[in-house]
């Protein structure tokens, strides 16, 4: 879907990004992870040509980005910014309707689409006539997402989408976005410096440092098979938590017992081990937990999770 080949950028003699290649498949979520100044935002902005690469190419659906009229090209890609970037002089409805009106949709269609998006993002319809400054930070961010998705683009780019929010709102919005039906079919590339966000939201991560690619792969690859010392150090704090977050119940079925009886409703095989541990730890000690995976029902408890984790580590290092 998105393919970057050898893209690089130099600003006034400083190399912001060494040649970088990656690809994102249709429907995949990719996180660009890194510290400040690592080149992650530069990389993202080259995907919708807000920055033109010095060298290399970006192709979307097999078509080279640079060969298309830039405005038309950008209208086909949703873009969400850290500081939402809502137009302060436009109402929420007008903000959401920007791209559709640039695409000259009929007014009625835009109005319907705005109402539809407000509903999907759990915003009351009365918000349509409010101005951005009347909204809370989390609401502004949701309007920002609605605006990016208004013309239903297949690709969504997000630059630190939750970066400006407080920790509580941030976690709530992040988990809300994760299950949003609106985003399920989309190909998403997002920039973050938050490891947990990358691990929990992305199917795939690229880690940048000082303009260079450090490692590319699934979250578990970084946590169990770090390629170099930088990657290892990067995840060092809270490593256990990250590792638990990077694995889901279905990843550890091999270490669990199949159960004949039990209610599998409480848990879901896509839940990560960290979430499962949180659920278990708040329950009574005598409670048992089950989930359904591969048409079988498994029983799980904290002991089993930790033994599965060490089993997993050993199998990786073997």
């Amino acid at each position: 879907m998105i393919k970057a080949s050898g893209i690089s950028k130099t600003f006034k003699g400083n190399i912001a990004l060494h040649p970088l290649s990656f690809s994102v498949e249709r429907g995949e979520n990719m996180a660009i992870l890194g510290t400040s100044g690592s080149g992650k935002t530069t990389t993202l902005r080259m995907l919708n040509r807000l920055i033109e690469p010095d060298a290399g190419t970006v192709t979307i659906d097999g078509k080279e980005a640079l060969l298309q009229p830039v405005e038309d090209f950008r209208r086909g890609i949703g873009y969400v910014l850290q500081h939402h970037g809502l137009f302060p002089h436009y109402t929420v409805a007008e903000n959401i309707g920007i791209v559709p009106s640039l695409l000259k949709w009929p007014k009625e269609k835009i109005k319907k689409r705005v109402a539809d998006l407000l509903e999907q993002l759990h915003l009351p319809n009365s918000y349509a006539q409010k101005y951005p400054h009347e909204l809370s930070g989390g609401e502004q961010q949701r309007v920002g997402l609605a605006r990016a998705m208004a013309a239903d683009p297949p690709i969504l780019l997000m630059d630190e989408p939750f970066g400006a929010l407080d920790a509580v709102t941030r976690a709530a919005i992040a988990s809300e976005f994760k299950v949003l039906p609106l985003l399920q079919e989309k190909t998403i590339v997002f920039v973050t410096h938050d490891v947990q966000e990358a691990i929990t939201l992305a199917d795939k991560i690229i880690l940048l440092h000082e303009g260079k690619l450090q490692q590319e792969g699934k979250a578990a690859d970084f946590l169990f098979r770090p390629i170099n010392a930088f990657v290892k150090d990067f995840f060092e704090t809270n490593l256990l938590q990250y590792q638990l977050q990077s694995l889901t119940l279905k990843d550890i079925t091999a270490s669990l017992k199949i159960s004949r009886a039990g209610d599998p409703k409480a848990l879901h095989s896509n839940q990560n081990l960290w979430e499962v541990l949180q659920i278990i730890s708040t329950a009574e000690e005598s409670d048992s937990f089950f989930f359904r995976g591969n048409d079988k029902i498994y029983e799980v408890n904290s002991e089993l999770i930790f033994s599965a984790l060490s089993h997993f580590k050993n199998s990786v290092h073997a």
Partner: peptide, 27 residues
């Protein structure tokens, strides 16, 4: 005019003339 606003305008595919007349001048 705040940078994220013009950035968003460009990112959404507004032409420079549209950014001027719809975003910058009104603000």
């Amino acid at each position: 005019v705040s940078a994220p606003v013009t950035d968003a305008a460009r990112g959404m595919g507004m032409t420079p003339a549209q950014i001027l007349t719809k975003v910058e001048l009104p603000l």
